[in-house]
Computed example of a mutant assay.
Amino acid sequence: MHAPTGNQYPLRLEADGRTVTAVVTQVAAGLRALEVDGVALVETFPESSTPPGAAGIVLVPWPNRVAQGAWQLDGAAQQLDITEPKQGNAIHGLLRNTGYALVLHEPQRVVQAAAVYPQHGYPFLLETEVEHALVDDGLTVTHTIVNRSQTAAPVAVGAHPYLALGDVPIGDLVLMVDASTRFLTDDHQIPVSEEPVAGTDFDLTQGRRVGDVSIDHGFGGVVTTNGRSVQRLEAPDGRRVELWADENFGFVQVFTPTNFQAPGGPRRAVAIEPMTAPANALNSGEGLRWLRPGESWRLSWGIRYVAN
């Protein structure tokens, strides 16, 4: 019997006295599990389930939302399927329910590929590839996108991991987000403005306890040092899990639901979502990458464990 997320690809690496394991899924090239020395770094879910709250999935050719699924291409109206009926938006791209084709599966890495085919609302052909590769402190995810259309195609990339730190209660972790602005949204969670976080409750640069915050916002002005941005969750004992991303990922979405459907029942969780563009980028153009015909785009992010 097939799992709702398709084939499951277990990964394992033993190096420098550490054991790193992960499970990657065929559907949405999702990350279902990641551990370092038995310490879970992401929220997991049963093989018999769909990803709760889009846990671990790849977001292509846009992350987050497109207002009412509508945008303009060279003056012509485009209408995407409405995949968030409650808010009336198109959400999380076009591959979240797609089964990727296996390219390579080795003990320490898996490579999968999927095409975005021309369709109403997005008349472009893209080839996409995702590599999940274990490293001695976690995982590196590399995306490659090639525009096979005859015209330039608008593209943005994101991912939707929920981070964790073993059995430390999520509410006790300290959330740090190194970003200088926050997107304010309307009732449909579409950005209407951007404001500095300094002096507000959304300044997470020095860290805030997860149990004390309620966030579902995009952040801009992500700080990059030596080609990488780093967001983190830190335990009271100093251990931490970090989400890093290369300079292509100039934005991050932070989501702290209290009803995440964990195996033991609904509870608090923290999604830290690297994004190359914010919500509604097909309309605003902010962060949007226009790939020329035949042009390839390669970009990476990852999750790492730092012991004290």
Rank of each mutant, 00 (worst) to 15 (best):
254 V>W: 08
168 V>P: 09
165 L>D: 05
253 Q>I: 04
272 I>R: 10
285 G>M: 00
253 Q>S: 14
183 F>Q: 01
158 G>P: 06
190 I>S: 02
93 G>V: 10
62 W>Y: 11
231 Q>E: 11
290 W>M: 08
181 T>S: 10
230 V>E: 12
9 Y>I: 11
121 G>E: 12
75 G>S: 05
164 A>S: 14
30 G>F: 00
54 A>N: 15
112 Q>E: 07
196 P>Q: 02
47 E>D: 14
88 G>E: 11
300 S>P: 15
43 E>L: 03
16 D>S: 11
13 L>V: 12
215 I>S: 07
45 F>L: 07
116 V>N: 01
247 E>W: 01
172 D>T: 11
19 T>G: 05
276 T>V: 04
143 H>M: 13
301 W>H: 03
141 V>W: 02
297 W>Q: 13
286 E>D: 11
294 G>Q: 12
12 R>E: 15
75 G>T: 00
70 A>W: 02
217 H>T: 12
211 G>D: 07
164 A>P: 10
35 E>Q: 14
14 E>N: 11
175 L>N: 10
79 Q>A: 03
44 T>A: 00
137 D>F: 04
110 V>E: 03
21 T>Q: 12
240 R>M: 04
63 P>F: 00
26 Q>I: 00
201 D>Y: 10
240 R>H: 02
194 E>M: 11
48 S>P: 05
91 I>C: 06
115 A>C: 15
100 Y>P: 08
7 N>E: 14
206 Q>P: 14
74 D>Y: 10
179 A>S: 09
107 P>S: 07
167 D>Q: 11
271 A>Y: 10
103 V>G: 03
232 R>I: 14
99 G>P: 11
78 Q>N: 02
260 F>D: 15
177 V>L: 10
147 N>F: 00
10 P>Q: 08
201 D>T: 13
263 P>Q: 04
112 Q>R: 14
7 N>A: 15
174 V>K: 11
179 A>Y: 09
174 V>A: 02
38 G>C: 09
114 A>N: 03
204 L>Q: 06
285 G>W: 04
36 V>G: 12
